[in-house]
Write a protein that binds this DNA or RNA. Structure first.
Length: 669
RNA sequence: GCCGACGUAGCUCAGCGGUAGAGCAGCUGAUUCGUAAUCAGCAGGUCGGCGGUUCAAGUCCGCCCGUCGGCUCCA
């Protein structure tokens, strides 16, 4: 929804872990794509079809740009540009592509004019006038030189810049132009043949946003106008309704309604307070990770929140990520270690990642090949100074606690360990019943000028580790998308990409190979032959961070958690005051079983108490009145399920224990 | 950080130059109730903050802070 359909690129979406045919050998680097190719979207309604949900490997060929929907949206974007230039003469153009639910166009408005959302309806009206004029779209292909001449005449500097790039860097020998009415745009097309084909009531201008030219903050800030566009009013309305419905599941909204977390400016932006309900979920996740990691041979460690600068110089993080770190605390009482004796104060940083500390744990004693693989795990809290405008509820924060671990391996063990981590992800994802996500294999891009200094320049090591990561995916039969230039600075990685209900894409989990940092720390193990060797390191976080992971869980379950995860698992509901004693007795039994239970002690009516429990999405309400008290039973009313059950207390407790222990999902009606 | 929109009670919102309102939540009382809202009362707001215009400012203007939507970055 947010990304333009880029030109000439074949988007691939792979539903990982799908029970689909093994990915053919030809998948992978042969299919390396540009780093920003389309990723489609959850098709709320009428978007470009993808198989995000169906598990079939979708390949949107270039021809998919030539759908009626695409043409319609693209042509509407030209109509919008024409309308804007009519209303605000002198407005310059950027890009104006169709997107998954409509289109946008980037503009630079002249002088003091900065249209806000109030002017959108005016632009919309002008667009409708243009559509009614029944303008024809005419295509014209010009040879490179003539094309440049034409664009110079159009006085569109950004179009010119792009045209020059197409000709000089990409070697195109001609460019195409589309004319409709008085409006001419350099554009690849295709378009509808006449504006009369455009739906007068199928589009609406949605928002005004700033956008840097070509997405680079060093460039000029343009004004982007977004629009929804569908073939007719009904589909447009469906889209708007779907967006509204999605917002009801948004973790920020549910987080407040369910009292999971709070972000207070008094504490700091991006620094969430975990309320008791949210903390219960964190504890359950930590229990789960403890169990999973213990069984897989991981060892728990615990490391401090602040550390001397030298550690991050050694790791290589400081020069690369200092902007992303909280500024240092200067300790004037201590001379800087690793300094030149010039009396500089010691600098301590809040840790932005756990790996350097884990490397120090590795280095704390002599290691033998017999110690490997050594798997060090920690739910570690880290702090990153994310940009103000980037913060987003729990999904992007400045303080977070990560399901982190570092696995030190010999070269021979690397692939198997990497695969074992993938398998662990699979177990987790099956447990949560996640389905809508895809894997992204992120590789080195030595050509990327913006990041040339980011990477360790060791082509051989990159090639070797990228091969291992790719083979691991292939051998597991996983689908994935390749993204050049998205690797970590220390090695290739596989990211697990999810979309939030408001269709933002996030990395939730990650599995990374690191060949670069262990040598910088001088990490060694003594091999079988008595020589010292440097281990590889795997960084992995299947449960990501509590913050982002829980944000996704909230949206995934719409706030209605399975019993094992629910902040309040059982609400005991006495019919009247005389049943309070019995209700409290049951609550006590549940508490002794470590079940998060409450009694509704209000004097509201039964209907009101049920409503209030249901509003809190508590998985089970136990109704206890005369019948139950006499028979020693409870009446179980599950969230979202009409059919009630009456059970003895003992039977209920047994069933509940099993359900929680097995972390079962119980489907609503 | 940048561009735009928006900030009224714990929550959802009305009021848009002339004495701050509603519903829900909260508290008190009555009610003791069998499956998604019992009734009544009370309390709750320097209308985000600071300046300005005006006889008079939630209401108009400016700056700041915050929230949301984008751009960028990332777990």
């Amino acid at each position: 929804m947010f990304r333009p359909v880029a030109c000439g690129l074949i988007p691939l979406l792979h539903r990982a872990f799908a029970r689909a045919p093994r990915s053919p050998r030809s998948s992978g680097v042969e299919r390396v794509l540009g780093k920003d190719e389309v990723s489609g979207s959850i098709p709320l309604v009428g978007s470009i079809p993808t198989s995000w949900r169906t598990g079939i490997m979708p390949i949107l060929e270039e021809s998919s740009r030539d759908t009626p929907l695409y043409r319609m949206r693209h042509s509407l974007s030209h109509v919008m540009a024409q309308a804007v230039q009519k209303l605000y003469p002198g407005t310059l153009l950027g890009f104006g592509p169709p997107i998954d639910d409509g289109f946008y166009y980037d503009f630079i408005f002249p002088g003091e004019v900065t249209p806000g959302e109030k002017t959108l309806s005016e632009i919309e009206e002008t667009m409708r006038e243009i559509i009614r004029e029944r303008q024809g779209f005419e295509r014209e292909d010009l040879a490179a030189g003539d094309a440049l001449e034409r664009i110079r005449g159009m006085k569109e500097p950004h179009k010119l810049e792009y045209a020059q790039e197409l000709i000089e860097k990409r070697g195109m020998d001609s460019l195409s132009f589309y004319t409709n009415g008085p409006f001419v745009d350099m554009c690849e097309g295709p378009h509808v043949d006449n504006t009369s084909k455009l739906p007068l009531d199928g589009f609406t201008l949605r928002s005004v946003a700033g956008a840097y030219w070509r997405g680079d903050e060093r460039n000029v800030m343009m004004t982007r106008i977004y629009a929804y566009a569908y073939p007719n009013r009904k589909q447009l309305r469906l889209r708007k309704q779907a967006v509204q419905k999605a917002q009801e599941r948004e973790h920020r909204k549910l987080g407040q309604e369910l009292s999971l977390f709070a972000i207070r400016d008094e504490v700091g932006r991006g620094l969430p307070l975990w309320l008791p309900n949210g903390t219960a979920i964190r504890q359950e996740l930590e229990k789960l990770a403890d169990e999973m990691e213990f069984k897989a041979g991981y060892k728990r460690v615990a490391t401090p929140h602040i550390t001397k600068a030298q550690l991050y110089r050694t790791s290589g993080h400081l020069p690369l990520y200092e902007d992303g770190m909280y500024p240092p605390m200067l300790m004037h009482e201590e001379a800087e270690s690793g300094g030149d004796g010039g009396g500089e104060p010691e600098r301590y940083y809040l840790k932005p990642m756990n790996c350097p500390h884990h490397h120090m744990v590795f280095a704390s004693e002599m290691r033998s090949y017999r110690d490997l693989p050594l798997r060090l795990a920690e739910y570690g809290s880290v702090y990153r100074f994310e940009k103000l405008g980037a913060l987003q509820g729990l999904a992007r924060v400045r303080g977070m606690t990560m399901n982190d671990a570092h696995i030190y391996t010999t070269p021979e063990q690397l692939k198997d360990e990497f695969k074992a981590v993938m398998e662990m992800h699979k177990k987790y994802y099956e447990l949560f019943e996640f389905e809508d996500y895809f894997l992204r294999l992120s590789l080195w891009d030595p050509e990327d000028p913006k990041r040339r200094n980011k990477y360790f320049d060791d082509p051989e090591a990159w090639a070797a580790t990228e091969k291992i990561a790719q083979e691991a995916l292939e051998e597991l039969g996983l689908y994935y998308k390749v993204s050049k230039g998205e690797a970590a600075f220390y090695g290739p990685k596989v990211d697990f990409q999810f979309r939030s209900v408001i269709e933002k894409e996030y990395t939730v989990s990650t599995n990374q190979i690191d060949f670069a940092v262990p040598p910088r720390f001088g990490l060694k193990y003594v091999d079988r032959d008595g020589t010292e060797k440097t281990p590889y390191c795997i960084h992995r976080a299947p449960l990501g961070t509590h913050e982002r992971f829980i944000a996704f869980l909230v949206e995934h379950y719409g706030g209605a958690f399975p019993t094992w995860l629910a902040p309040v698992q059982v609400l005991v509901l006495p019919i009247s005051e005389r049943h309070l004693g019995y209700a409290r007795k049951i609550e006590g039994l549940l508490r002794q079983d470590m079940v998060r239970a409450e009694v509704d002690e209000s004097d509201a009516t039964t209907g009101k108490k049920i409503r209030s429990g249901a509003t809190r999405k508590i998985p089970m309400i136990l109704i206890v009145g005369d019948k139950e008290e006499e028979a020693g039973t409870v009446t179980v009313r599950r969230y979202g399920i009409k059919q009630q059950e009456n059970k003895t207390i003992e039977a209920y407790l047994d069933d509940l224990r099993d359900e929680i222990k097995e972390r079962r999902h119980v489907k609503a009606d």
